[in-house]
Design a protein around this nucleic acid. Structure first.
Lengths: 184, 184
DNA sequence: TTGGACATGTAAGCCGTTACATGATTAC
DNA sequence: GTAATCATGTAACGGCTTACATGTCCAA
C-alpha cells in the first residue's frame, strides 16, 4: 500500500471548521497546531486545487475583502470523506528525534557539546511553558468553535504534558552529565 | 538551504560503534532505536554506497561468515564528519501526530470512534511498558558499548517517560469522554 | 515611501517508502 | 523439503520542503 497524502485531511479538516483561504490555513496551523502538525504553502495550494477538482471543497472569490483572496468551504461530499478518514485507525507517528540521535552517538563528540544541546532544548521548552502560561487557555481557545473546544483542550493538554516531561528529562540528563564532570 | 539527508548520519553513527552490514544496521535500528529513529532498506543501501564513494566508510566482504554479506567500518574522515555533525544544533523534530489531528477534528465523527482510537493508543503504550519491564534495562544494554552506555540509558529513559506520559494523558481523555456520555 | 503583512502559486529536487527481484543458509 | 531468516539491492512514485516569482494593502 502506498504512502498516503495526509495534507489533504488536515486541509479538509480545517475547512470543516469554517470558510478560509490557503493563507489562513497556513497561519492557523503555524500558530495553533504546530505542536502536532506542520504544513507548507508548497503543499497547501496544490492540495486545495486537488480537493476542489474532486468536489470535496468549493471555491469562492473572497469579496469584499478582495486582495487576490480565495476562500474555500467544505462540501457534503468532503465532510463524508473526512468522517471516513477519522474512522480509520491513526498511523503511528513517524519519529525522527535528532536530539536523541545525537545523544546516543555522543561518545563521538565532547561532553560539553551534547550538554549544550540539552541545555538549549531545556531553555526552548521552558520558554514555551512560559508563553503558554501567559496566553491563558481561554485566549488560545477563542478561535476554536464551541463544539471543538472540548477536544481542542485535550490536544493542548497533550502539548503541556509533553513539554513538562521533556523539561524534567533534560534536567536529569544535565544533572548526570555534571555529576560526571565533578568526578574527573 | 536544502533539506539535509539525515540517514547518512544515522548510518555513519551506527558504524562508529562497530563494523556491521546494512542488514545489521536495519535490524539494530528496528530493535533498539525505533522509539526515536526509523530507516528503511531503500535508504540504507544507497546511503552505504554513497558513504563508501566519499571515503567516509570502508567496505569489506564478510568472511568467513560469507553469505553475500558485506560489512562496513568508519574511516578517520568519516569520524571527523560525524563529530562535526554532532556539534551542530539539532533541528526541531518534525511532528505529525495523526492521533492528535483526529482528536482535534473529532466533532466530525462519532465520539465512540475517537474514544476507541485513544483506547487503542493506551493499550499499545501499556504493552510497550510491560515489554520494557520484562526485558530489563541491563539486557537492553548488552549490545551497547561501555562508553555509549551512559548516553544510551538517557535515551531509554526518554522513551519510558514519554510512554508513561502518554498513558496518563490517554486516561484523562477517556475519563473525560466517559463523563460526557453519562450526562446524556 | 517603505517595510511588513497579506495573498497565491509553481518548479526543482531531494527524501523516503513500498514493492519487487534474487539468492543463500539454517533449523525443523 | 520447506519455511524462516539472512542478505543485498533497485525502481517507481509520491511526499514535502525550499526557493523563487508576483503583486496588493496598510500603517508609520
Amino acid at each position: 500500500m502506498k504512502r498516503e497524502n495526509k495534507t489533504r485531511y488536515a486541509v479538509l479538516g480545517l475547512l470543516s471548521i469554517g470558510e478560509v483561504s490557503g493563507y489562513d490555513i497556513n497561519k492557523f496551523i503555524k500558530e495553533h497546531l504546530s505542536f502536532f502538525w506542520k504544513e507548507s504553502f508548497g503543499q497547501i495550494y496544490p492540495t486545495l486545487k486537488r480537493l476542489k477538482d474532486n468536489s470535496l471543497i468549493k471555491e469562492r472569490v473572497g469579496m469584499p475583502d478582495y486582495r487576490g483572496r480565495k476562500v474555500y468551504s467544505i462540501t457534503d461530499k468532503g465532510r463524508d470523506f473526512l468522517t471516513s478518514y477519522l474512522e480509520k485507525t491513526p498511523d503511528d507517528e513517524v519519529i525522527r528525534n535528532e536530539l536523541l540521535l545525537k545523544l546516543f552517538l555522543a561518545s563521538n563528540c565532547k561532553e560539553e557539546t551534547i550538554k549544550s544541546h540539552i541545555e538549549n532544548e531545556l531553555k526552548r521548552r521552558e520558554a514555551i511553558t512560559l508563553k503558554h502560561k501567559k496566553i491563558n487557555i481561554d485566549h488560545r481557545t477563542q478561535c476554536i468553535k464551541k463544539e471543538d473546544e472540548r477536544y481542542w483542550k485535550h490536544c493542548l493538554n497533550f502539548a503541556n504534558m509533553y513539554n513538562d516531561m521533556v523539561i524534567k528529562w533534560c534536567k536529569t540528563v544535565i544533572d548526570d552529565l555534571e555529576k560526571g564532570e565533578n568526578n574527573e
